[in-house]
Simulated scan of single mutants.
Amino acid sequence: MSNSKSQSESESESDSIGYFLEDIEYHGRNERTVAAYRRVLRSFESFLEERFGKTPVEAEYRDCMAFVHDLRSNYTDSTVASYASYLNRYYGYLVRVGQHDENPMELVLEEMNESIESNPSRRDISLAEMRTFVETIRHPLHKAIVMTFLKTGIRSGELCNLDLIDLNLGHDGQSWHPRAQIAEKPDTLYISAEHSYGAESGGTVRRASNKRKRETTIPVDDELRRVLLRWLAIRPNVRSPSEPLFTSTADAWGRRITIDTIHHIVEQYAREYGWLRTGGGAAENVTPHYFRHFFTTHLRDRTGDRGVVKYLRGDVASDIIDTYTHNWNDRVRETYLEHIYSITDVESN
């Protein structure tokens, strides 16, 4: 590390930000880049102290989001994105050295990339076009995966982590007992907040993480219910204590589906349909991540209720989550079932 720093500067960096700057310099970042990181992180540090009386180590998602919002009033979108990436790397470092339990910038970046507002940078697919696309999918597993994405807006990792007990279809032929949280709520899907990559939960080591801070219960409408029942009729028997909802029907017969497999399935259909090409970016290609954007955009426009959509997406907002969780039948479920779009049954839409 350079010895040209003044004593006062060295002392001012004898903290988490200082150690992080040393780390990136040791890993080959040039002086100009380190200076840019220093400027942004020190600005963030001052913002937190003045606005919330917190240090960067104490900051949470809402604090980071507030800083990004403040940046937007002074900088272009591309500059804000760059500065947000600086914070993301900094918090990744804090997690790595054990100074922070999790990276609060991960969700901030996700929200920036999946803005609840209309995102003109993404391919604009109408409901009619999506219906035609889904008609090309015949395999019961593949259709169940795509329809679950389109009807719930969940992430790929969350879909992989679904177990049978996370689904209550209230069906006479249902051979499993749903978990307690949804045992009295037929036609409901439960998204856990517990599953983390590499950790054991539900009797199995998870290979994907659920990025939700709170559990979420999502209604299952008649259309998704039919698709899931069709899949369950052919679903391979498995000997896993966790009984995954979605399992492979190819090489890894009967094993829990993986994120890689999901991406392969979706991208195969998207490529054949002309919605994906090698080298195409998020503005052009349709991937599993796109379905979450589609769900957000179309359901928000139909309901006019951002709160319900944010709840279903699993976005972190304690006041929204608490209000809607305790008011399930009166607000979320009724709003969802009244406004959710139809994909395979046009007449009922």
Rank of each mutant, 00 (worst) to 15 (best):
Y61M: 05
R206S: 03
I125Y: 06
S43A: 10
E272H: 02
E50L: 15
Q174I: 03
R42Q: 11
N3E: 12
L141C: 00
T247G: 02
S6G: 12
L245E: 00
N74G: 08
R62Y: 14
V134A: 07
S12C: 03
G203Y: 04
L41G: 02
E45N: 15
D124K: 15
Y341W: 04
R123E: 07
L228Q: 01
S46V: 09
L94T: 07
M105S: 05
F149H: 08
R38I: 04
Y37R: 03
S342L: 06
D15L: 04
G254C: 01
I343Q: 02
V227G: 00
P244G: 01
G307F: 13
D260F: 03
E117N: 12
L164I: 02
Y93W: 13
I154Q: 00
L41N: 03
K213F: 07
E106L: 12
E60G: 14
L224P: 03
E129I: 08
E267G: 02
L276K: 10
V146W: 02
E200K: 14
D163S: 13
E334P: 00
S6E: 04
D172R: 11
D70R: 13
G279M: 03
D166N: 14
L167N: 03
F133L: 09
Y324N: 00
E184T: 14
H293T: 05
N74P: 00
K54R: 13
D124V: 12
D166C: 09
H264L: 12
R122G: 04
S16N: 12
T79R: 11
P56E: 04
E45K: 15
T278E: 15
R155C: 05
P219V: 04
S10C: 08
G304K: 05
L48E: 03
Y91G: 01
I137R: 04
R302N: 08
D221M: 10
N237Y: 07
D305G: 07
S192Q: 09
D315C: 05
S175D: 11
L71P: 01
G53D: 12
R239F: 09
S248L: 00
I257N: 01
P56L: 05
N285P: 05
L21K: 01
T152I: 05
S115F: 01
E31G: 08
C160A: 09
G198P: 04
R62W: 14
T335S: 08
G281T: 11
S240L: 07
F149V: 08
S242C: 02
R239D: 13
G170S: 05
R331C: 06
V134N: 04
V238Y: 04
L229P: 01
Q7D: 09
R300N: 15
N161G: 10
S85N: 13
I165Y: 06
V80L: 01
Q181N: 09
V205P: 05
L228E: 01
A282Q: 11
E106I: 11
S121L: 15
I154E: 00
H27I: 05
N161F: 00
P288R: 05
S12Y: 03
E9L: 11
S121A: 13
E215H: 15
L94H: 03
S318Q: 11
R331V: 07
D251S: 13
E338N: 13
L71N: 02
